[in-house]
Write a protein that binds this DNA or RNA. Sequence first.
DNA 1: CCAAAAGTGTTCACGGTACACCCATGC
DNA 2: GCATGGGTGTACCGTGAACACTTTTGG
Lengths: 229, 229
Amino acid sequence: MTFTYEYARPALTVDCAVFGLRGDDLEILLIQRGQDPYAGRWALPGGFVEMDETIEAAARRELAEETSLQEVYLEQLYTFGAVERDPRERVVSVAWYALVNTDEHPVRAQTDAQDAGWFHVDAVPDLAFDHRQILDAALDRLRGKVRYQPIGFELLPEKFTLRQLQHLYEVLLQRPLDKRNFRKKVLKLGFLEELEEWERGGARRPARLYRFDRSKYRALEKEGFEFQI
Amino acid sequence: MTFTYEYARPALTVDCAVFGLRGDDLEILLIQRGQDPYAGRWALPGGFVEMDETIEAAARRELAEETSLQEVYLEQLYTFGAVERDPRERVVSVAWYALVNTDEHPVRAQTDAQDAGWFHVDAVPDLAFDHRQILDAALDRLRGKVRYQPIGFELLPEKFTLRQLQHLYEVLLQRPLDKRNFRKKVLKLGFLEELEEWERGGARRPARLYRFDRSKYRALEKEGFEFQI
DNA sequence: CCAAAAGTGTTCACGGTACACCCATGC
DNA sequence: GCATGGGTGTACCGTGAACACTTTTGG
């Protein structure tokens, strides 16, 4: 079956830059392409938009198909439409970025992908298409947005220590933060729920666990409150 | 001539939310559609992306064709891809917003459009498609971005008074600003060039003119400087 | 000389930053 | 008991906010 139109149309795809925090590193999820063009090359997960799904649904479907990720934080980044960005034909791609907690979201290679894996964002191999450019745009967006929107929590487990949260900001902002000032500031914001639970397993004093309270955040937001880290 | 593909493809369009400052008001440029669907309805200027142009080029071309605007500040906003957003068939639209100085950019209706006109952003008629949603997203973006990026100058003439600049921020942020504090702050930023020229024609004391110094701004930006209003 | 907007400084409160030590736990 | 990271408070400085009068011009 084929489809015929009066005017030529670009193909429409989605691509996803998926970020995760692993130990001390900010990592990006890549798949190794199984088919031409760029067979064998690493690339962002993505694929064609179907006619009966929104573009966001297409992004989620491709993530699930290629990497088995589900229910991640996903936000539209930018649409890339250079004429020659795909060597086969004109392809316009709506890029998204996703944030996942690598503990709660294990990843495995699926259809279309030979392999899938996490790479330190500073040690990414040559990528297919213009995916390097997409990745850079996603990193810029993430680093800018994390300072005034509570998206960093998406990279952490549901319950986390203040040390983990501080470390996350240090990795994203690429500068050290003062422990006492960070704690004061973030607790004063008023949307962290202090739990009666403590970290386990380390050879040291266990740290208290906190949880991001979305409803409290939304309430504060409505009152015109703004934060900045 | 027709074009045939193995898989169905959405049509791809661009739509532009063009903002201008007119007197005391923030206005949006609309065209009145000459053809179905929504013939006679007001809409954002826009149209189909051609195969040999980038999506940004498509946005600029449509603006020129429908409203005769050229060389405006243009930035990608968001891509709208709801399945039923166009009653004819599946159409995905890359939305852009533009900022123009209404004095230096007169507007007139061109091809496809019966008419073109400026509307106060709080008095916009029913719009075609999902253009109301696009306009709201553009307004949010503009109001957010103007606070920490020097895009407001795009709405003013090249030479402007501090009064005009303050007024611009008051209109965009929808709150009054203190004259003395505003002047102190904005002059201290260091990227306004104080001219030896003065306003003309008013029945009052003429105000000094200033100019936004882009190269000075870029230099400050490189040093890690950030502003916030 | 009158109306209208231009232009200008100081005080105060708050938040950001710098900075060092004791405490609790596991081994 | 010792190593490791958890947890805490204070002093200073710079920025943001509040606030009112004099000056200049055109008519």
